[in-house]
Design a protein around this nucleic acid. Structure first.
Lengths: 107, 107
DNA sequence: CGGGATCCTACCGGATACTG
DNA sequence: CAGTATCCGGTAGGATCCCG
């Protein structure tokens, strides 16, 4: 059933785009690039996002090995999200996107 | 009416992502990065795309100043699509995406 | 606090047929 | 050849409410 992805076989660019495709993927990665954060912290930092979307995207990013989810067994639940090496390696991509944006999207 | 974009104010990364957001944007840009092409050529090169989508995305990319549309006043219509400087400048982004994909998405 | 379970809608993207 | 015009389904994404 999940064989749709097999269509995008060869091209690594497209596959990368799929990983970063979600509307909130980049904002999340960007936030985590600065610092490890808890769930509510992220929800506050990323303006406009709602609970469900944050959960969903975080889960996706986790499945894609970009985000690491660390649960602390405490009474008031505490979960920290951080970037894996794979996630941190996206820095170069973000930098290039930022550069391009600054150069050509200057409103 | 088109004030949705104003929400994503500051972050150039997100704005870049919006420009490249369409499902076929990258495949198109990638194809044009190699060589200027005509409409039907693109339709053939980009596997899986259909007429409507190609038209739509090309129009969007043109509006964003990434793609240049050149019409030849001939009897069998001839239209060539190429990348603008702004479009060519996306090379760095694509390269980084490709690198990351190759490094971390090796199936 | 960190989510899960629902409900709902817009609109993205696909398939075709048609036109100058 | 280079599109335009329709029709249509799936789903990404949003708004709550609730629970351990």
């Amino acid at each position: 059933m999940n064989e749709k992805k097999s269509k995008f076989t060869d091209c690594p660019i497209t596959r990368t785009a799929e990983v970063l495709g979600g509307k909130w993927s980049l904002p999340i990665i960007f936030a985590l690039m600065k610092e490890t954060s808890r769930f509510k912290e992220l929800e506050r930092k990323i303006e406009g996002i709602n609970t469900r979307m944050l959960v969903k995207e975080l889960k996706q990013l986790e499945e894609n090995g970009i985000v690491l989810r660390k649960v602390y067994a405490e009474v008031p639940p505490k979960v920290e999200y951080s970037l894996t090496e794979k996630g941190k390696a996206l820095k170069s991509v973000l930098v290039e996107m930022k550069n391009w944006g600054n150069q050509f999207l200057t409103v």
